[in-house]
């Protein structure tokens, strides 16, 4: 389908691609520049800062009104806990579906698939009322608590994740665990010490997917979290902007750049772990 380019063919291709690259990268350059611009007013910003400064970064971490450092910590805490627990819950379920034969197994797998057809976010009203009444009994898991938010995120732990992991577990030969069992290991020990290390790539994949979705999640965090010190980054950043383009733009830009970092790190790490293959070298059947 491809031929060697003529000079003209080469020029229009590169021109087109450079245009697309400009489209892709301009907003990022613009926000990076805003964070170093001396002004806090978006209308006065220049692409190349006239007097580059770190003042907005300092302002961001010392502001009394906006607790950016809290939002960052909250987001990291919630995301890491939710993603870790998601991996654990999904792995336990997937192992049972992969290795045990029991009544209701097929129905269970089918049920997980069917439940996934209904988006959890559609139930925000009920989730709000549920957490509200949960808080009447256990104040530590009511509105405006991170526990409640993590609980809601864990609702999505079983489902496609379990399916994905079960598929992976199915490819790991059973002979590995059977030899462990001969040596006296319980099923849980075989799962924990033999299967989990072998399944690292899929565990990493699920972790990354849960991390990315929880880190960017807005609607549930917005209805459950009420006070500025409890916010996650998406809720907080939206508040920080709240149409004050001429007053806090530089500060917002600095926050935006910092908020990108954890996400970017996970994204880059994921690319590597997602490619590496697995049972390679353990057993060939």
């Amino acid at each position: 389908m491809y031929d060697r380019h003529t000079l003209g063919g080469s020029i229009w291709r590169h021109a087109l691609i450079l245009l697309l690259c400009a489209f892709s990268i301009f907003p990022v350059l613009w926000i990076a520049s805003a964070s170093f611009n001396a002004t806090n007013n978006m209308g006065l910003q220049t692409l190349i800062p006239r007097h580059p400064t770190f003042a907005h970064y300092k302002e961001l971490f010392t502001s009394d009104r906006y607790q950016f450092s809290m939002w960052l910590l909250n987001s990291l805490k919630i995301t890491i806990i939710a993603a870790t627990l998601t991996v654990m819950l999904a792995a336990l379920g997937a192992y049972a579906f992969s290795r045990f034969r029991f009544k209701g197994r097929r129905a269970g797998l089918l049920g997980l698939l069917l439940i996934q057809m209904f988006p959890q976010v559609g139930a925000i009203v009920a989730i709000f009322l549920l957490v509200l009444s949960l808080g009447n009994i256990f104040p530590w898991a009511g509105l405006n608590t991170h526990t409640a938010l993590i609980f809601v995120y864990l609702g999505g732990a079983m489902g496609f994740n379990t399916w994905l992991m079960k598929g992976y577990f199915d490819t790991i030969p059973r002979s590995l665990e059977e030899s462990a069992k001969v040596d006296g290991a319980t099923p849980f020990q075989a799962f924990f010490w033999i299967i989990l290390p072998l399944a690292r790539p899929i565990l990493a994949t699920i972790f990354v997917l849960s991390f990315i979705s929880a880190y960017s999640e807005l609607i549930i965090a917005q209805i459950l979290l009420r006070s500025g010190t409890k916010f996650t980054l998406p809720v907080g950043m939206a508040l920080l902007v709240s149409d004050q383009w001429s007053q806090r733009w530089g500060m917002f830009a600095a926050g935006a750049l910092i908020a990108m970092i954890p996400f970017l790190i996970v994204f880059i790490l994921a690319q590597r772990s997602l490619v590496s293959g697995l049972t390679r070298g353990s057993v060939k059947e």
Partner: peptide, 24 residues
């Protein structure tokens, strides 16, 4: 026995997804 492995995930699935959707 196999259900013991499923219970932790199922609790959250039922309380935080199935129940809210039904309630909605």
């Amino acid at each position: 026995y196999p259900l013991r492995w499923l219970v932790p995930g199922l609790i959250f699935l039922i309380v935080m997804v199935v129940y809210p959707i039904g309630y909605t």
